[in-house]
């Protein structure tokens, strides 16, 4: 079970969180024309990286904040966690 440092609450076990996918995905702006390809990329296409990956987790059974977690998908090592409003460097 992973040990995740919630930027709001501190260290908590994985079973308090739920996974939310790739954190680098940016939703196209509302009311803007989006090509089929761009929309597919947003909705479906993910890189499925091996290695460092910024991803979203929600501290569901805690502060309920969505956070950004930089994790190695192969080793589960976590390098960094950020609040929702902090940008991935």
């Amino acid at each position: 079970m992973l040990y995740i440092k919630c930027p709001h609450c501190g260290w908590r076990s994985q079973n308090e969180f739920s996974y939310g996918g790739d954190a680098s995905v940016i939703r196209p702006e509302l009311n803007k024309k989006v090509s089929d390809q761009d929309w597919d990329n947003f909705v479906y296409n993910r890189k499925s990286l091996r290695g460092k990956h910024w991803e979203l987790w929600q501290h569901l059974s805690g502060c309920r904040q969505w956070i950004k977690v930089e994790r190695d998908t192969a080793t589960h090592e976590i390098f960094n966690t950020l609040k929702a409003n902090e940008d991935i460097s």
Partner: peptide
Amino acid sequence: LSHLEYYLQLVWP
């Protein structure tokens, strides 16, 4: 609820 929180916290803060 999680869905609303997602959009409020991440997409349209």
